[in-house]
Design a protein around this nucleic acid. Structure first.
Lengths: 233, 233
DNA sequence: GGCCGGCTACGGGATTCCCCCAATAGACTT
DNA sequence: AAGTCTATTGGGGGAATCCCGTAGCCGGCC
């Protein structure tokens, strides 16, 4: 899982950084960050207004691999208070040292998903006592939800990312063949069904594997099902 | 002996209907509805506090097949104002007659998704002039987002419970191996990873294929992904 | 104790898949 | 009009999968 800091080149970066800053200012927060994972390649990309030292440390240590605010939130529907990670070893590993960088271990992550299996995580932090935090959280969770949706929508629409995350252009034939394979047919079967050579079937499968970034046909089927391209019978 | 309290589901339904009523009351709305397509069975289930006549008419005409507030919203990340459907033929077909039932054609649909590809749609309507509607919308969109998340979460939790009871009894080892196969590993790879013979891997795969009623490994992976047993990487 | 299911391991042989190669027709761009 | 891209169609050969067995060990259940 690679960590790509989008943002040193495009003009979008400044706008999105400003958005995070504005979010913090308006909702009385310390820091805000956004991360998304490519549904095909699995690469993680993000924006954050954390101090540069913390970003560098985080990336250098590869903390995204153990950070529960990422891998646990990505499995959640609802916003997740980091309080839930208090007895998580990974959380301790990430946030025990974060105080030295001025990063509080009190925060909230809002997951937001698109129709293609894409998932974005908007996280915010605030150093204050727990009672204040709960009141603040209750007050701003709706705004955060809206902000997360807007941010994720913006990132998904952005050219930079659409280049990186463009939905694989699966041809009709490829989808058709993958559908039959997912239905339990062999390549020879599919060839007979479609009245084409099983060699041709294999070429299409090879093509669709490549487009989905899959090493094997089972992996391609799994991803295609996940992306809603096909539905298993 | 299975402990399945069927009365629980009806209690859930009553509770969810009450939730929609409460939502309308608190946010100054006329009607609210929720719909989701079960990612496994594909069955559509919904809750709404529309008048019974409208529900019956809607179901009798099969309007869910052309209703853009459903099939277009499931492709959206952000909440969708029905204003966007004003020049949609399907929208006109659905909502031209809705006025006779007291259903305004002014509304908003909030999509919400879970990590398994599940998607829920929370829709609300309000009859008022456009300026009022815009102000109301801006004020409540955060609450609607939060409400949609909670509603969807509740439905998915109860669904997964009932789903687990129908789920084939896949052993831990089988699930583990199928997960690696879905990650693009060959049988030999999996054997090396788990420090077992590739022959053994094949035995487990054979077993899991049989349990899932799949003829081939790709089909088994597709079904397992759809059942949420594994998640493709 | 006997029985059953799960995990482990092995082999032979038939089938299937996967990767190298090439080629044509049509759509699209320049 | 020429080039480019994609979808489509093939072959051959090596690798992998799949199906047919066998068999020991362990833990739970009647």
């Amino acid at each position: 899982m690679d960590l790509i800091d989008l943002g040193n080149t495009t003009a979008d970066e400044a706008r999105r950084g400003a958005f995070l800053d504005q979010l913090c200012q308006q909702l009385e927060l310390d820091f805000a960050s956004y991360a998304t994972q490519h549904p095909v390649t699995g690469a993680v990309q993000g924006y954050a207004n954390y101090p540069e030292e913390w970003k560098r440390y985080y990336a250098a240590q590869g903390l995204q691999r153990i950070d529960p605010t990422l891998w646990r939130s990505v499995r959640s529907i609802a916003p997740v208070d980091w309080e839930r990670f208090s007895d998580d070893a990974g959380f301790a590993a990430v946030f025990d040292n974060s105080r030295e960088f001025g990063i509080p271990a009190q925060g909230l992550t809002v997951p937001v998903r698109g129709p293609m299996g894409d998932c974005g995580l908007l996280s915010v932090t605030r150093a204050c006592n727990r009672e204040e935090w709960r009141k603040l959280k209750r007050r701003i969770v709706g705004n955060l939800q809206t902000a997360a949706v807007h941010f994720h929508d913006s990132v998904m629409r952005s050219e930079t990312v659409t280049l990186l995350m463009k939905m694989p252009a699966i041809s009709v034939r490829e989808r058709e063949i993958l559908q039959w394979v997912a239905a339990g047919k062999s390549q020879q079967d599919v060839g007979d069904i479609l009245s084409i050579s099983h060699r041709t079937v294999e070429v299409h499968l090879r093509s669709v594997r490549e487009k989905l970034g899959a090493l094997t046909t089972p992996q391609a089927v799994g991803r295609a099902v996940r992306l809603g391209l096909i539905s298993p019978t």
